[in-house]
Write a protein that binds this DNA or RNA. Structure first.
Lengths: 200, 200
DNA sequence: CCGATACTGGACATCATGTCTAGTATCTTA
DNA sequence: TAAGATACTAGACATGATGTCCAGTATCGG
């Protein structure tokens, strides 16, 4: 009767349920996934599901929270470093997302764009924090800039994970940061391509 | 039996259903709204609903499509004008959104961020079209820039509609375009606030 | 005024949710 | 390895939302 969930069965069940949710979310979008679907995919009894989580949202929330812990740790480690004129959070985020592509795509809602509140909230705090450090300004201006960057970041991340862009994490980050700091003008001016690839 | 829906009863019912959907979406988010809720709010029989629309999504889609027609018309009218180094679509969009605040907020999913595919698609095409006109470049670079701007725009729009920012449509648009074209650096550098251009 | 059309409430089948129970499998640890 | 604790399981159940259908009633347009 130890404290945590050391029991193999518990760990196994939760792992299977999480994986199933990620797969199904990526395939059909979060809204379309039912608890029965998840259990079928995970090969777990439906009643078992409810002994672990009260509902579908809770499963997702827990899964996301666990992974945000990883991100938090990474961000925390770099927090003391001076920001050399760019965002600190985005690089690690792109890199980590690349490593766990499926899960991150699921976290953004799969093909559909169903970004959970926790994710948006976390990005929002990162951006706001970093922007506030860069320059002191009016609340409205900071708000606008924050929302601007959050929206742009999530959309670029989603696009990059969903499409087969062949871009390395570092390359997207560079592109993202250029767009964010220099704006359209600078990026559009440059004539050279990053990497050739047709579109759909 | 003329072509359109000249019958008063039909027009009335659809109008009521649309309005009810907008209200409820703004209040509780789109996902939480049920068909029964809509009918109750609109004071319309539930069976009547299904004689007009096959489901909830269809009602939203129709409503959105109708309003996108308005936007399309506005955009089309300005399409021939030369773009003086900025986006053409955003100004009218902010202005029109201001005029029909509730409906637009509902179109973005209410408090929650549940942006329907049609809206995202329309913005995407606007942005891509305008960006492509500004400079010729690789597909990836254009893709990235497009998604960047789309995400930023939708998020800023949502924030502006949701919060009581006191910013006039013109002011948000200016702020948005500054961020988009000059980037963070330029906007954050300026010490003065935008405040004072409120509109009520 | 009258025929056509739209609205209505209610019945119905279907499906997903969440709870509960009694029985079975598996873990831990003594 | 045996025993007690704990997790899993299938299935029944109540609830609520969906979408279909129908017969009766109100309202429209000509």
């Amino acid at each position: 009767m130890a404290a945590g969930s050391i029991d193999r069965r518990v760990a196994r069940t939760r792992r299977l349920l999480q994986a199933a949710l990620f797969e199904l979310t990526t395939e059909n979008g979060y809204a379309a996934v039912t608890v029965a679907d998840i259990c079928a995919r995970a090969d777990v009894g439906r009643s078992t599901f409810y002994t672990h989580y009260p509902d579908k949202d809770s499963l997702r929330k827990t899964a996301i929270e666990e992974h945000l812990d990883v991100m938090r740790a990474m961000a925390g480690a770099r927090d003391s470093q001076p920001s050399a004129g760019g965002f600190v959070f985005s690089g690690p985020a792109f890199a980590h997302a690349d490593a766990t592509r499926t899960m991150h795509l699921a976290m953004l809602g799969g093909k559909k764009h169903e970004i959970p509140e926790e994710v948006r909230g976390w990005i929002d705090r990162q951006v706001r924090h970093e922007l506030a450090d860069m320059a002191r300004q009016g609340a409205i201006r900071l708000d606008a800039a924050t929302h601007f960057v959050v929206g742009a970041f999530l959309e670029v991340m989603h696009w990059w994970l969903d499409e087969e862009t062949q871009l390395s994490p570092a390359a997207v980050d560079q592109l993202f940061q250029s767009l964010a700091f220099e704006g359209m003008s600078a990026v559009l001016a440059k004539p050279h391509d990053v990497h050739g690839k047709g579109h759909d």
